[in-house]
């Protein structure tokens, strides 16, 4: 049941590139070819992320660090509102 709820939550999760600017989110899953690289730089599950700008390369803060990430990579990060 718990895993079903988790799947349901993931289905309703947004990608970081879809998420609204100026809001705080929690990372639910990092999934894709570059997922390990993303985790290493700070985009790992359960971390809080704030999106600052949209665009081809978007700006975010994770744990107080500013990171610039391309749209292709941001699509591999699933978030839910924090």
């Amino acid at each position: 049941m718990a895993s079903f709820a988790k799947e349901l939550e993931l289905d309703s999760a947004l990608t970081l590139s879809q998420a609204a600017v100026g809001c705080d989110f929690q990372i639910r899953r990092v999934d894709g070819p570059e997922c390990r690289q993303l985790r290493e730089i700070g985009f790992c599950e359960e971390m809080r992320v704030r999106k600052i700008t949209n665009g081809r390369n978007m700006l975010c803060t994770v744990c107080g660090t500013r990171l610039a990430v391309s749209k292709h990579l941001a699509d591999q990060i699933k978030v839910v509102p924090a």
Partner: peptide, 11 residues
């Protein structure tokens, strides 16, 4: 592959 941008912006 197309190069992907991922960079830390230090304070």
């Amino acid at each position: 592959n197309a190069p992907q941008f991922l960079l830390e912006l230090p304070p």
